[in-house]
């Protein structure tokens, strides 16, 4: 298990369990009461820690190395899933995956950022940072879904669109802009769920939809707290303050009306019980898609564009 800095009290308790197990073994003592007791303490401590996390702590959780990613969730929530590859233009981006899946007997087009879980796969997935062909693959799949009248579900989890030379050459900005433009007019329902990091244009590039949800311990903003700190404070040291200032948690975002709802995570975060998390997500997708299908496509498009038109805070006087 990996413990984050604010989970330190848990680490101590787990160490105690280990200690008692060792004592029990070496002295042939029955320590099970002791251990159950500590396990209770662990549960309580975990609940307490997780009750009220601040922005930076949630950013850390959203990046937890054991946190489940798109393909894991798809393996759990779909009866069947077939990944589809390539943008038909340049290549197959590994940081965005997509394909048809069967959810509760119905076909859904799933698209999501994908990160790796060890150093080899992390590199293979480019740390979840897509190149333009990733966004273009996503758009191709969305158009395919539209053609056959299948709803789209997007999982968002990226530290940002990749800022490399080739990405710029192949038009990272154009790819993201095009997706925003086209997604506004797609005739099928689009549901977007932030499952980890929602960093800026890289997240929004597959994030425009009828309903936007966030898992409890995720973040969504215009910039990562680290980059914000480096630009505005001219130092990397202010990331925790930047995280607070950016008001990037699921709670903040629903409060602003930018995000439509929160999917609760199991105690200890999504990584603590990934299967349970997947079930929470599955139930919510089924429920939301059912609602969205009630509208006809014109109505849905109008509501979608109106929703974005209404986002913005300013003063007005003649």
């Amino acid at each position: 298990m990996i413990f984050l800095d604010f989970e330190k009290p848990l680490l101590d308790l787990y160490d105690q369990i280990e200690k008692w197990q060792r004592i029990g073994k070496s002295k042939s003592l029955d320590v099970s009461d002791r251990i159950t007791d500590i396990e209770h303490q662990i549960e309580n401590t975990r609940k307490n820690i997780y009750k009220d996390l601040n922005g930076w702590q949630r950013v850390q959780l959203s990046r937890h190395p054991e946190r489940p990613y798109t393909l894991f969730y798809l393996s759990q929530i779909c009866d069947k899933f077939t990944e589809l590859h390539g943008d038909r233009n340049f290549g197959d981006d590994k940081a965005i995956v997509g394909g048809f899946g069967s959810l509760d007997g119905e076909t859904v087009m799933f698209i999501g950022h994908q990160k790796g879980s060890n150093s080899k796969t992390r590199q293979y997935r480019n740390f979840g940072m897509p190149n333009p062909e990733g966004y273009r693959k996503a758009l191709r799949l969305m158009k395919l879904a539209e053609k056959f009248d299948k709803p789209i579900v997007c999982f968002i989890d990226t530290p940002g669109a990749y800022p490399g030379i080739e990405a710029e050459e192949r038009g990272q900005a154009e790819a993201i802009a095009r997706n925003l433009f086209e997604m506004s007019q797609l005739k099928v329902p689009i549901l977007c769920i932030v499952i980890g990091e929602g960093a800026s244009g890289g997240a929004l590039g597959i994030g425009l939809g009828d309903k936007i949800l966030m898992l409890e311990n995720t973040w969504y903003s215009v910039i990562s707290p680290e980059s914000c700190s480096s630009i505005l404070w001219r130092s990397w040291e202010f990331k925790e303050i930047a995280a607070e200032q950016l008001k990037l948690t699921a709670k903040d975002m629903t409060g602003f009306g930018i995000v439509d709802g929160i999917i609760e995570e199991p105690d200890g975060g999504a990584h603590h019980d990934p299967e349970k998390m997947a079930q929470f997500i599955k139930q919510r997708i089924i429920k939301e898609l059912k609602e969205l299908k009630k509208l006809d496509s014109e109505e849905r498009i109008d509501l979608r564009i109106d929703k974005y038109a209404n986002i913005g805070e300013y003063d007005f006087s003649e």
Binding site: A177, E182, L204, L208, I258, I305, A309, G312, E313
Partner: peptide, 19 residues
């Protein structure tokens, strides 16, 4: 940056209006 997610969403707002 000082308007965080609100400014991010202006990308979606302007692009969808352009559609």
């Amino acid at each position: 940056m000082m308007e965080a997610a609100f400014s991010l969403m202006q990308m979606a707002k302007t692009a969808s209006k352009l559609s």
